Amino acid sequence: MSGIVSRLVHDKERGEILDGSRRYLLMRPDVLMGMLQRLDDTARVRALSAFAGSACEQGGDSIRAYAKDATGQDLLDVVSETSAGLGWGRWQFEVEGDRLRLTVRNSPFAWGYGVSSCPVCAPVAGIFRSVATEWLGAPAVAAEVECGAMSSGQDCKFVAYREVP
């Protein structure tokens, strides 16, 4: 066993799960996403945006740590393996010139939310933005362009590219 799963330390005495200094939490996705279902549309959009921003910022710490040992395709492979190991679905990256595409099969966020009229995988978009920023070597923009919650459980698709100043 390698990757994130073998690195996680379950400290039952302290009640925490760690990968080095980074703390993780096991939580059912329907519990987390059910909170968003209870918000009105305006509050939900704001919460999803904040969720993406926080995932980019906080998750970016992990991505930068991975980037110390892996760059280019190796970084994308590490992120794919780590995402699967943490239950974030199966991630597949595709390089398209100076754009990066991501397909997520079995997103826990789409699954946990259920049927939606808008994309709900904001944490994935946030992490993907930090991955794209490392991969491109410049600030990036990332967006979910298809969400499984909007299409009866299909894959979620994202695109990222350099941020235009």
Score class of each variant (00 low, 15 high):
A149F: 09
A122G: 06
L136M: 09
C156F: 06
L25M: 13
A110E: 07
Y66S: 09
V164C: 05
F109C: 02
Q58D: 08
S107P: 02
V78F: 04
R64N: 05
Y113K: 06
V124D: 06
G148K: 11
S21C: 01
R162W: 03
T133G: 07
C121L: 05
L76W: 01
R90C: 11
A138I: 00
V78N: 05
P29A: 08
I17K: 07
V159S: 01
S151V: 07
D77L: 08
V131G: 02
A132L: 00
W88L: 12
A125V: 04
E146I: 11
C56T: 04
M33C: 06
V5W: 11
S130V: 02
M27D: 13
D77I: 04
L26V: 06
G126A: 02
E144M: 05
Y161V: 03
G59T: 04
V9N: 12
T103E: 10
N106S: 15
I63L: 06
S117A: 10
A122W: 00
S6N: 15
M1W: 13
L25W: 13
L39R: 10
I4G: 12
D61G: 04
R64F: 03
V145R: 14
F51M: 11
I127Q: 03
F109W: 13
V164I: 12
L39V: 02
K68E: 15
Q73I: 07
G97A: 07
A47G: 03
E134I: 02
A65F: 09
G148H: 08
A142L: 00
A52K: 03
L36A: 02
V9H: 10
C147I: 04
A110I: 09
P139F: 06
V95I: 09
D61W: 09
R64S: 09
K12E: 15
M1N: 14
V164Y: 08
Q37L: 11
I63V: 15
S152C: 08
D77T: 04
S21Q: 12
E134K: 02
E144C: 11
V131M: 01
V159F: 04
H10A: 15
E81K: 14
N106Y: 07
T82R: 13
V5G: 14
V79H: 05
R38P: 01
G112T: 05
S152F: 12
S151L: 08
E13H: 13
D61Q: 11
R46L: 13
D30C: 03
R99Y: 06
K12C: 13
E146D: 14
A43W: 10
D74H: 10
W111V: 10
L75V: 03
F128R: 00
V104G: 04
P165T: 12
W111D: 12
A70V: 04
